[in-house]
């Protein structure tokens, strides 16, 4: 898969060759939900900066507000307090340069895999002139044989690949990953983690990953952010400077993993 994507990678970025990842800044963002008139705080003064091309993972206990943070970054919801900006420009709504990949692939069941991947280009009126990018994106995730299949015919891993292709076809500057591998079996998951790293290295986007898998965070990210229980605050930031490609058995990564478990209050479980 790696070998045959060398060509498509250039095609995917042909629109703007200088486009690499975007910088993201989250400045003192707090957010709350309205639950039957009561205000439920979910995020508390989150301050985080991502350099262009960085791969940052966010870890935290389930239900702490990680996904909410990603929705704010994607521009799907506005923050209650604080400011989010990409490359210095305030985030005021969804934009095709920031694509979010959800835990559930959420492919449209009435469209073929090809049309699902083509969705972003179609929405922006670029499909007619950039049809080959859809084929490239499908090849990139190894689904080129399944262009005419319907989502219900795909396995879980294939669906998630299709969702990834649907994001990558837009050549995002920031890829927002909301536990994208959470529902996959462990073998598919490991294979997809490797692919994610190589995609990120080749396409050069900035990646913001939410996960609850410490090993995944340590294996993928160059920096790991640990959040507290709801309302989520940043309680630790762990830099991970090991070069890519990484190996799961690397003692340095194992050590990092132990440290992060400690931040999550699970030191004795390790």
């Amino acid at each position: 898969m790696v070998a045959r994507t060398a060509l498509s990678e250039t095609a995917l970025r042909a629109e703007n060759p200088s486009a690499r990842g975007a910088a993201l800044s989250i400045s003192d963002v707090s957010h709350c939900f309205d639950l039957e008139g009561r205000s439920l705080p979910v995020l508390e003064r989150i301050r985080l900066h991502l350099a262009a091309g960085e791969f940052v993972a966010i870890l935290g206990p389930s239900g702490c507000g990680k996904s909410t943070l990603l929705r704010l970054v994607a521009g799907l919801d506005p923050p209650a307090i604080g400011r989010l900006a990409m490359n210095g420009q305030a985030i005021e709504g969804p934009d095709a340069s920031r694509i979010i990949v959800f835990q559930d692939p959420t492919l449209y069941p009435w469209r073929t895999v090809w049309s699902n991947v083509a969705l972003g280009l179609e929405a922006r009126g670029l499909l007619r002139s950039h049809r080959e990018r859809v084929d490239d994106a499908l090849r990139l995730v190894g689904l080129d044989g399944f262009a005419t299949a319907y989502p219900r015919q795909l396995s879980g891993g294939m669906s998630q690949r299709a969702a990834l292709a649907r994001a990558l076809v837009n050549d995002p500057k920031l890829l927002i990953l909301d536990e994208p591998l959470g529902q996959l079996d462990s073998l598919t998951r490991i294979a997809m983690q490797q692919e994610l790293v190589s995609l990120w290295q080749r396409a050069g986007f900035t990646a913001l990953l939410v996960t609850h898998d410490v090993e995944e965070a340590v294996y993928l990210a160059s920096r790991v952010i640990v959040l507290s229980q709801r309302p989520a605050r940043i309680i630790a930031e762990v830099a991970n400077v090991r070069p890519y490609p990484r190996h799961r058995g690397d003692p340095h990564l194992v050590e990092l993993r132990r440290e992060i478990m400690g931040h999550l209050g699970l030191a004795e479980a390790w």
Partner: peptide, 16 residues
């Protein structure tokens, strides 16, 4: 609602 989220992040207009 997830279908709309997808289309919105991909740059879909109301009409789309």
């Amino acid at each position: 609602k997830a279908y709309y989220d997808i289309a919105r992040t991909l740059g879909g207009t109301q009409r789309f």
